[in-house]
Simulated scan of single mutants.
Amino acid sequence: MNVLPFARALVCLGAIAACSAQAQESVTLKVHHFLPAGSAAHQQFIQPWCDKIARESGNRLKCQIYPSMQLGGTPGQLFDQVKDGVADVVWTLTGYTAGRFPLTEVFELPFMMQSPEATSKALWDYTQKHAAREYAAVHPIAFHVHGDGVFHMRDKPVRTMADLKGVKLRAPTRQTTRLLAALGATPVAMPVPQVSEALGKGVIDGAVVPYEVVPSVKIQEIVKYHSETDPSEPALYTSTFMFVMNKAKYEGLPVDLRKVIDANSGQALSGQIGKVFLAADAAGKKLIGGNPVNVIPKSEIEAWKKAAVPVHEGWISEVNGKGAHGQQLLQAARELIQQHAAALR
């Protein structure tokens, strides 16, 4: 009896069985982030994304979400956690690892953001074309920004640049730190989870965060005043966020499950997250109750823009020193923001 054809048949059958088993494999993704489970980010973006990939995969892709840094570490370590496989997916600010994503920081420069949805779409396009190497160690799912940054002050509102002189203000990123210093304030860098305690103990006099953050850290219970910039102007600042996956985890998924991740990634998702954050701003603002809110007028903001010019120039000089062309990248980011903003009108 010639056993060779029989042996080959067994090998083929085994391969088919292995492929079939892989196709039916169920995968649970460890999703890690820094805000509480009650935050808008968790409830309106991360959990819905997890629910959607579960539905579209026939429940073969599942998430185990770990909010509030439940897998350990600090917010600044989230990128390394996903890169190294401690977590499978993370959501975090690029600015929490200061200086690690310098090309992306162009979106955090003062007075860049026109709308969270448009700017988030622009950010996705920009990273794919101009800053992909900053994320080569992971698999990007989405990039986005939050809504307008707002001053939340303990003892006095902000009406003019003079009101910021010497005031200790929480800053989220390097570029916002530089902006606040240029405006005369004393910036104190810290992630969002530390803001409540710092305000309560008087370590800082105020914080710049979007209204979306208010419910997560109960800012409205600690501060008395909220100062916005003229809504007809670009935002004072915004922060950039990444939603990224461990590269080996993504590449090790069966082809059909990778397609589910791909269908729930990219420019459209980035813009949708921006919309979620804009809606969350409105909900957060309702919680401030009777606290006074003032709008810093356009005439005053013009002086702030002039003061912020060195911040833009500093970023251009820094990325030029890294071999990039800062002015061209700044122009590219602005054009993408304008292009997506025009498409939404």
Rank of each mutant, 00 (worst) to 15 (best):
W124L: 08
A171G: 14
A87E: 01
M153Y: 00
A98W: 02
R159S: 11
H340V: 01
G149Y: 10
D51H: 03
D51I: 01
H152C: 01
F101G: 08
A182N: 09
I65Y: 04
G206E: 05
A132M: 05
A263P: 03
G274N: 09
T74E: 10
W49V: 01
G58Y: 07
I337Y: 02
Q44M: 10
Q24F: 05
Y225M: 08
F143Y: 15
N59C: 00
L278G: 02
H312E: 04
Q43S: 10
K121E: 14
G274I: 05
A341N: 13
A342Y: 05
L78D: 04
I288P: 03
G200R: 13
V89T: 01
K83H: 01
I65C: 00
S68P: 00
S299A: 15
Q81R: 05
P234A: 11
L287Q: 13
G314Q: 06
A21H: 09
A333T: 02
Q267L: 15
K201D: 04
K322E: 11
V260L: 03
A342P: 00
P36V: 05
L336W: 01
P157R: 09
A341Q: 13
R100Q: 12
P5F: 11
L169M: 15
A131D: 12
R345D: 12
V208W: 01
G284M: 07
V208Y: 01
V214W: 04
F243M: 15
G76D: 04
V309M: 09
D125I: 02
H32V: 05
P48C: 07
T74R: 12
V31D: 03
A324D: 12
L123G: 10
V276P: 06
A263M: 04
Q22N: 11
A189D: 05
H340E: 12
S57T: 01
K259R: 15
K52M: 08
G76S: 10
